[in-house]
Design a protein around this nucleic acid. Structure first.
Lengths: 206, 206
DNA sequence: TTCAAAAATGTACCCGGTACGGTTTATGCT
DNA sequence: AGCATAAACCGTACCGGGTACATTTTTGAA
């Protein structure tokens, strides 16, 4: 009988502990200045065990971050265009301002990531992965492969940019609800750009 | 008097030798399977010297690769829109099929890069850097910062995708001139997408 | 209680990259 | 030509991330 084991719970618990300890240490002393040995010791495990939970040092910070545009496109309602599905999703997401998320933890995570070139590189890599997945998901609804790839690249670029702007504001001290409101506007702007192109706002310099 | 020294020539020569040796070894045995010690030994220099020429192992392959969309935008003709300048540049580039480039060397470079996750990560990082520079260059011509960033992200995405498709074809054995012809079409497609949006080709499934 | 599987561990090692101190070599000046 | 200087080069030792391996501890279930 597989009774939602105690084992599994302990594992998740250990994993969380390692991750939290690491994030706190990174935040206090900087990503590069903290060694995995120190993290392991502080978390009360061996180095090998740490690498058993997290494949790399980067993963200690980045494993918790994931976006899944491809899934949104693949799971869209019948007859809905991919771009509409994505716009609806991010519109809602911006509206509720994240909702159930732990703002404190998120902020330190952002702080750590954005102050480390190595971690930023990891983020870029993740984006590239998303781009490929999204292109595959778009493949069915577009007339050819290259169009799907081009659209996927543009969409991923826009979403990435929106996220960055949002996080940047949070880091700068803008309150969550105000950042959410700004994000709502920018989501519309971004998706309008995707749907209608640069020519729709060309030369409208304020 | 700075008379184009023998020293400088030797340096460039050494640098090239290291780079060429490294690329060949990577191509033969795989990026991860070759150590920098081996490269240094094969090139007849000390490991320290190698790292004096190339900051990291990645740089041995990636230092030769660079694109400069920001410069194209910054140096565009009076009254020309950024997007027009970029389209013109890549149109011409595709037309002459690279022209003076060494196809053989380029191909092995592509082969090495695309078969190594570490190198691909480096490429993605470079793209991100380009995105920031392009956003800065676009900043003057757009109505606000976020629009510039969104456009830069879309443009970078499109150019990246076009490059990837082109290189992918070359790797697959498509002759250079044919790949160039296909690229020409796709450049127009990509920039049309940027200018007029997805709605302009929506539902045109062939 | 007992036993097999899973998890954790310690050790030793590899590789990329850096610090340091000493040696060669080109260069510019006399 | 000869000499001083600064640049390039080198060997060595070291650090930190990551892995292989053999061993021990823990855990779930019979």
């Amino acid at each position: 009988m597989m009774m939602a084991g105690l084992r599994e719970r302990k594992k998740e618990q250990t994993r969380r502990r390692i991750s939290e300890v690491a994030l706190r240490m990174f935040d206090e002393r900087g990503y590069d200045a903290v060694t995995v040995n120190e993290i392991a010791e502080a978390a009360g495990v061996a180095k090998v065990t740490l690498f058993n939970y997290f494949a790399t040092k980067e993963c200690l910070v980045l494993d918790a971050v994931k976006d899944d545009t491809a899934a949104i496109v693949a799971g869209r309602a019948e007859g809905q265009s991919p771009i509409d599905a994505l716009r609806a999703h991010y519109r809602e997401m911006a509206g509720q301002g994240g909702g159930d998320m732990d703002v404190e933890a998120l902020l330190t995570r952002i702080r750590v990531i954005s102050s480390s070139p190595a971690l930023l590189a990891g983020v870029y890599q993740a984006h590239a992965g998303q781009r490929y997945e999204l292109a595959a998901a778009l493949g069915d609804a577009t007339k050819d492969a290259i169009s799907a790839q081009l659209m996927a690249a543009q969409i991923t670029g826009v979403i990435t940019t929106l996220q960055e702007a949002f996080f940047h504001r949070l880091s700068a001290g803008v309150p969550l609800d105000e950042a959410g409101r700004l994000l709502e506007e920018e989501v519309e702007l971004g998706f309008d750009l995707l749907e209608h192109g640069f020519s729709s706002i060309k030369g409208e310099k304020s």
